[in-house]
Simulated scan of single mutants.
Amino acid sequence: MPAISRGEVSYITGAASGIGRALAAMLVDQGGLVIIADINAEAGSKFAAELNERAEKVVAISVQTDTTNWEEQLAGFQKATTTFKRIDYVFANAGIAEHPWLPPFNPETAASRPIVKPNLATANINLTGQLYTAALALQTFERQEIGPSGFRGKLVLTSSVFGYYPSRAMPMYAASKAGVINFMRSAAQYYADKNITVNAIAPNLVDTPIAPDVLFVPFREQKLLSDIQLVLDQFEKLLGDSKVTGQALSISQDNVWTHPADKYMFEENNPACDLISVQIFKLFGDSTP
Rank of each mutant, 00 (worst) to 15 (best):
V161W: 01
F91M: 11
G32M: 09
V63R: 11
A110C: 00
D274V: 09
R113L: 13
R86Y: 08
Y164D: 09
K194R: 15
L239S: 03
L102M: 14
S226C: 08
F183V: 05
A22K: 13
D29Q: 15
W257H: 05
Y264I: 12
F141L: 10
D38P: 12
T140Q: 10
K194W: 05
A192Y: 13
P104T: 05
A135G: 12
I61S: 01
M26Y: 00
L205T: 15
V231W: 02
G285S: 01
A60H: 06
A261K: 13
I201T: 06
I36E: 11
R152M: 08
H259E: 13
V214P: 00
I201W: 06
N93P: 01
E53P: 00
I87G: 04
L102E: 11
K46V: 14
P271C: 08
G32T: 11
E221M: 01
N119F: 06
A110R: 08
P103D: 04
Q78K: 15
S277M: 09
N52G: 12
S160C: 04
S17R: 14
N255G: 03
N40Y: 02
F284Y: 06
P218K: 05
D274H: 14
R21F: 10
P218Q: 08
I280V: 12
K154T: 08
E42F: 10
L205V: 15
L249C: 04
S45N: 15
K79P: 06
N269D: 11
S160N: 02
D274N: 14
E145S: 15
G129C: 04
L232D: 02
W70M: 02
N124F: 06
A110D: 04
I4R: 02
M1D: 06
N119S: 06
L205H: 06
A49T: 05
R168N: 12
L205F: 10
V231F: 00
T208Y: 05
A178M: 04
T140R: 07
F84D: 09
A49Q: 09
F162W: 08
N52Y: 11
P104M: 05
V231Y: 02
L136E: 07
A134D: 07
I19D: 10
L232W: 01
R6L: 06
Q234F: 09
D29E: 15
Y173V: 02
Q189G: 09
E145M: 12
S5I: 12
R152I: 09
R113T: 08
T68Q: 11
A272T: 14
P166H: 07
F183A: 10
G163W: 00
